[in-house]
Design a binder for these strands. Structure first.
Lengths: 145, 145
DNA sequence: TTGCGTGCAAAGGTTTTGCATGGCA
DNA sequence: TGCCATGCAAAACCTTTGCACGCAA
């Protein structure tokens, strides 16, 4: 069962590796169209499934929505959490040291191993709650979709 | 906007309250058929959506599969967090000071207002992860289903 | 009587699959 | 040349929605 190196696969991998954080199958297909439609829907899903099995990408689902995939580079390996605004639907991608402390606490004191990729924290974002965007600063990378 | 008390709703609530742990919409529909098909698919989804908004049931997704719903027997479930084991399905109710610190941190440093009642933290419980149940103790109330 | 709740069917979006063709090694 | 990969279309799956009718209050 050899594996071939094809054009669609190379493109999909490239898109995944350049993506900020996670990306959905739909977005990958959209980006492919800009490159001249070099892979069909079925190929995208089949390739993603293969890459997931190989551990090259990580699959995560946010709520009931479509699955998202994240390329596992050294940098992207930082586990992160998701904040989802229940009003406007914004998804905030958050890597923050405090959340690692949370994981440690829950593990050490409550013997529960958090799966950050699967966990979504619901609430209201600054806009919808009418709060000043940045009352403070935290050593964290945030990315908003 | 008054609310009516109807037969389908009563049946759906009964099935939810008798379910061990979580139950999917599909399973609810299957059980309804045994009772003589007293509610349609659409009604099940509409009712579940309504109950979720009221905080009577909690919606949770395990992997890519269909959404599952779990009846919240205690009304005080708004003030604490829930840990859901993705392997055995156990739902752990957790009131812990650390989680209040988390809420404060996320609010002050990331301007996001967490809704603890709507948030479900996914991961593996001690049994499924093969970890000693209590390596430490925390000032917290835990309740397992 | 009022207007919410229901059922049916159709549509919606995401993901998978069958089958013939195309392309890497 | 031998297989694997691809494309297309259709299907599978879960969930939502439109619309007319039914029913609780």
């Amino acid at each position: 069962m050899r594996e071939y190196s094809t054009k669609p696969r190379a493109l999909i991998l490239e898109i995944l590796s350049k993506a900020q954080g996670h990306i959905s199958a739909k977005e990958i297909i959209a980006q492919l169209k800009n490159h001249g439609q070099a892979a069909s829907t079925a190929t995208v899903y089949r390739t993603l499934s293969m890459l997931e099995a190989q551990g090259v990408v990580k699959k995560m689902t946010v709520g009931t929505g479509p699955a998202c995939y994240q390329y596992m580079s050294e940098r992207a390996c930082q586990e992160h959490f998701h904040l989802k605004c229940t009003e406007c639907g914004a998804l905030i991608h958050l890597s923050c040291e405090f959340l690692h402390l949370l994981e440690n606490h829950i593990f050490e004191k409550h013997a529960f191993t958090i799966s950050s990729g699967k966990t979504v924290i619901y609430g209201k974002c600054a806009k919808c709650a009418g709060v000043d965007e940045k009352s403070g600063v935290c050593e964290a990378s945030e990315h908003r979709f």
